[in-house]
Write a protein that binds this DNA or RNA. Structure first.
Lengths: 222, 222
DNA sequence: ATTATAAGTTAGATAAGTCTAACATTCATA
DNA sequence: TATGAATGTTAGACTTATCTAACTTATAAT
């Protein structure tokens, strides 16, 4: 059984790798996301290595082992199921769920989480649009949807791009469109199929050419 | 904000006082219910006294202050609401809820517990028949019911006695009837209104005279 | 009233997880 | 390729909560 602290380290490693797009991490990076000092992380890393949850060598990079990854995904599953519970059943706002789920994710009970999953109707995505791993730790892929097929007034999360030419990505960056960003469809122009989206309070126009190159998934809102 | 450990000490003090019927406790008693050593408890007691949650003097008895009692009741409220959630919504068995609720009761979020209360329909008793304190920390009294008015096949908890003569209490003790004990009504004889109850696997006959002196409340069962 | 036993206390040790300060290594680039 | 900045490591200290072993006080029974 892992301590809450150990669980947080493993989870942070997955989040780092997802955000950075690489599978390994450094002591300073990890310390940064955990809001701890590098010296502290260094000590814990030796412990996690001892327990076979990470591999790393002195002055080297940190990588999760498959056991470590499995544990981390289990914690992420719990986090996202609790977020869904808070949002769907208890009427929490989208931005309030994370903090409480950070605590709930460490409750130890297999039955609890499996029954919660069932109670919620085996949801595939959490209120932020993030995919919820299933009980086997698989990230079932949610059907791919292009931004060009969104509906007015609904909310989505950007999940990927079809085209990864630098110039295109730079343009997306300029528009503020990054993986993980959420937006709401304010309107769609019928004559050119351009889409007006609201993202972080700003309104942006997306042409149909761009929308056809960006993947999204629905996000639940209150 | 109290640590999980501190919360457990306060909660244990309330439970001890309820079970013993007295308001104070000793170091050894407290160590016993917490499964810790007296020396450990002694150290923590100084800390809780410092924080004004208990009063006690060297070699004296331990008493909760009103602040300490308030905190403890809040934790008990959380524990019982979570038990109700697990039982009513997630299909846990009566005997499975306690262990998980021990973990859930330490989650810190006022909104969480108030919304949970609402989601559950402001229940008055938990699956064990224990009264759930309300958000103000009041123990609303559940309507008194005599054992003589129970219904067949239903389950109840013994909550008190109308008569507290020693001889009567000794007799109850012999029957295994103590406050907090749960039983199921196996059958009621119509000609003498005697009640056959099942308690801890054993079947016992209760006369209508005895049943008229014992208070009970309904317990929920699966 | 004395004394054995039960209850309570103290001191010092241990483990987990954190910190600071000092030191070591790696890497980018001038 | 030498070197300064960024990154990583170590040692030692601190806090919380626990323990054991030794000691002190209270209590109950002869």
């Amino acid at each position: 059984m892992l301590s809450t602290t150990e669980e947080n380290y493993l989870k942070a490693l997955v989040h780092l790798s997802v955000e950075k797009g690489i599978k390994d991490a450094g002591t300073n990076e990890l310390a940064g996301v955990l809001h701890l000092k590098p010296a502290t992380v260094n000590v814990m890393l030796k412990k996690l290595r001892e327990k076979k949850y990470v591999t790393y060598e002195k002055y080297g990079r940190i990588t999760l082992t498959s056991a470590g990854r499995k544990m981390a995904i289990e914690i992420i599953r719990k986090h996202r199921l609790w977020e869904t519970f808070l949002f769907d059943k208890l009427g929490f706002d989208w931005d309030e769920v994370h903090e409480v789920a950070e605590q709930l994710e460490h409750i130890q009970s297999k039955k609890l989480i499996d029954e919660l999953d069932r109670f919620l109707g085996f949801p595939m995505v959490d209120p932020h649009g993030e995919i919820i791993p299933n009980a086997k730790g698989e990230l079932k892929s949610v059907p791919k949807q292009l931004m060009s097929s969104v509906e007015e007034k609904k909310s989505y999360v950007i999940t990927g791009v079809k085209n990864d030419e630098t110039s295109f990505l730079k343009y997306l960056e300029k528009l503020g469109c990054r993986i993980g960003k959420s937006f709401r469809v304010a309107g769609i122009q019928s004559f050119d199929r351009s889409i007006e989206i609201e993202m972080e309070g700003k309104s942006t126009l997306i042409t149909s050419e761009v929308a056809g190159q960006v993947y999204v998934r629905p996000r639940r809102v209150s």
